[in-house]
Amino acid sequence: MPHIDYYFATLSPFTYLSGTRPAEIAAKNGATITYKPLDIMALFARTGGTPPKDRHPNRQEYRLQELRRRALRADMPLKPKPAFWPTNGAPSAYAIITAQNEGTGDVGKLVQNFGAACWAEDRDIAQDDVIRDVLEQSGFSPDIADKGLMTSADTFARNLEDAVAAGAFGAPFFITDTDERFWGQDRLDDLDAYLAGDL
């Protein structure tokens, strides 16, 4: 059975724009998927990337245009300059890690809903009340926010190390068990084609 490691950041607009497609592509192709939230700024620092605020104005302007276009193509609401960005992505990542470990719900939907809270709803996904609400909206117990914090912190740190070791340098980043790598939500069609044996 094929497998996908999905490296992402809850703060990434392009993770948000991936929607639930990673899970749908995995299901369609009989693949399993492991969600690996990480600290995107630390990943940039480790792999030669530059945080958006430090990029040349030309790159910043292009990013805003690309966000608008990608959101229109995906038919998803998106605020290119949300009220609570950047914020601390760790608490939402911990909730995702715990939810995945519990194995009782739709983690893809949870990832999507955290992205929507930040990028479409102007909510601060570092806040406990927002995290609990997103968990509940996604079909999980809000109490997950209080569980396994040490384990989640360890996993969050390990995901960064795993990403660097596996060759990831941005988010979203998809790596198959055959070491085929796909960077960006705009490469999901390629991931799908690869898993189907068409690429």
Results as ranks from 00 to 15, higher is better:
G115T: 05
G115P: 09
G115N: 08
A116M: 15
A116W: 11
A117G: 03
A117C: 08
A117R: 10
C118R: 13
C118M: 14
C118E: 12
C118Y: 02
W119C: 01
W119Q: 04
A120M: 06
E121T: 05
E121S: 06
E121P: 02
D122N: 05
D122V: 03
R123E: 05
D124L: 00
D124E: 02
D124K: 05
I125F: 12
I125P: 11
I125Q: 11
A126D: 10
Q127I: 11
Q127A: 13
Q127M: 12
Q127S: 12
D128R: 15
D128E: 15
D128A: 15
D128Y: 13
V130G: 15
V130P: 14
I131H: 13
I131G: 12
I131Y: 14
R132M: 08
R132W: 07
R132K: 15
R132P: 15
D133V: 08
D133S: 15
V134R: 14
V134Y: 15
V134W: 15
V134P: 14
L135Y: 14
E136G: 11
E136K: 14
Q137S: 09
S138G: 08
G139K: 05
G139W: 07
S141K: 07
S141D: 07
S141C: 12
P142H: 08
P142W: 07
P142R: 11
P142T: 03
P142C: 13
D143M: 10
I144R: 07
A145W: 12
D146K: 09
K147T: 12
K147V: 09
K147H: 12
G148A: 12
G148F: 07
G148Y: 09
L149V: 07
L149F: 05
L149K: 11
M150K: 14
M150H: 10
M150W: 01
M150E: 15
T151C: 02
T151V: 01
S152F: 00
S152M: 08
A153Q: 01
A153N: 00
A153D: 01
A153P: 01
D154Y: 02
D154A: 08
T155N: 02
T155A: 08
F156R: 02
F156I: 10
F156H: 08
F156W: 12
A157H: 06
A157R: 09
R158L: 13
R158D: 09
R158A: 05
N159G: 07
N159C: 08
L160T: 02
L160D: 07
E161V: 05
A163Q: 09
A163F: 01
V164S: 00
A165Y: 01
A165E: 03
A165S: 06
A165L: 04
G167K: 03
G167S: 02
F169H: 04
G170R: 02
G170F: 03
A171G: 12
A171C: 14
A171Q: 09
P172M: 05
F173E: 05
F174G: 00
F174P: 06
F174Y: 07
I175C: 10
